[in-house]
Computed example of a mutant assay.
Amino acid sequence: MNRLPLEDIASAPSQRLGTLSWVGMEGIALPLRVAGQGVTGSASAGVSLDDPTARGIHMSRLYLALAELEERELSLPRVAAVLETFLGSHDGLSRAAFLDLSGEAMLKRPALISPLAGWKRYPFTLRCRHDGGGLQATLDLTVGYSSTCPCSAALSRQLIQQAFDEDFTDMPVTRQAVSAWLGSEQGILATPHSQRSQAHLSLRLADELDELPLLRLVDAVERSLGTALQTAVKRIDEQAFALANGQNLMFCEDAARRLHHTLRDQPGIRGFRLRVVHAESLHAHDAVARSEWNWEEESADEERP
């Protein structure tokens, strides 16, 4: 049986002329490796359609080019090479190529004191653009932490102070008596409210970076805040965590300022935008603070889909 040539409808000219800023695919399943660990990733790949007469792009060429990233350590040079393949396979059609890669990096984190360790997930998206003039990359990263309210801590201390004055009105103040009182339930009559919090970061990466600095950035952020969320713990770790929270009382404004100064000192970061969210345990709403540095100088993000 003779087979007729398969018709390529996409190669026919468009009946309605016009350029398009982005054409491609979203939600592509793609296994990645980040910080040495496997990641169930998702990709959005596209190119601009700059030929107003063209019916469409070659989506299969974009899909096949993504194989270069499968189960290989995610790096900026590899992403740049894939974007160059996007453009090379659409010569005459496209002048810009886009690739967003998302997933949850799995990092093993040690306990504060004991030898235990466990895994934590860090959601990320690497947003990349190539228009023939080089790679432009932005890393979106979410890092969780604990925050204890300074106002609540001060009010709790006041209540404990008042209870101490009342209990020791007619009692001799001896070291033994005070120590026993502090170890009783009266010694912790009130506790400040704490909440699980998140830092949402968007970081413009410098052109000269080769490796994806995700692990280095997570370490810097968690050191800056001082209250990283824990995995496997013993009681000694839980006590150390309580101490860390007490020594790092933070409004959302405090956390945002800490991160602002930390990120400005990170090598390979050309600009950033950050948002911290304290999921209030006192209120039925969140406390939020935002900051940015060197973010408005480029408008590439405004052109993204």
Rank of each mutant, 00 (worst) to 15 (best):
N245T: 01
R121M: 08
K120G: 13
R223I: 05
D51R: 08
Y122F: 15
A29H: 12
L214H: 07
P52C: 05
Q230D: 12
R129A: 02
R304H: 12
N245M: 13
R129P: 00
K234N: 12
L217C: 11
S21G: 02
S102I: 06
A137M: 01
R175I: 03
L209Q: 05
G92K: 06
R157Y: 06
L87E: 06
N248V: 08
I269S: 00
L159Y: 11
A111V: 09
S156F: 06
P31H: 12
D219Q: 14
A289P: 02
S184R: 10
L76F: 13
L212F: 12
A105Y: 10
D51N: 15
A97I: 09
Q230N: 13
A117Q: 14
V233C: 15
R109V: 15
R127F: 02
L189I: 13
P52E: 09
Q247M: 09
S281G: 07
A228H: 14
L217H: 05
C149V: 12
R109M: 14
D286H: 15
Q162W: 10
T262L: 05
Q239C: 05
F164G: 00
Q176D: 15
T125Q: 14
E238C: 02
I188E: 10
L263N: 01
Q176G: 02
L243M: 04
H278Y: 11
A300M: 01
H58R: 13
A177C: 04
E71K: 13
Q266T: 01
V277Q: 12
H200Y: 09
A12S: 14
D50G: 05
C128M: 07
A220V: 07
Y63P: 00
S147H: 06
R78V: 01
L83V: 12
R204H: 00
E298R: 06
A279V: 08
E104P: 00
R257K: 10
L205I: 02
R235Y: 10
E211M: 09
A256I: 14
L116V: 04
E238L: 05
E253L: 07
H278F: 11
R196A: 10
A163C: 03
E104Y: 01
L215T: 10
T231V: 11
A153C: 04
R204E: 00
P172V: 06
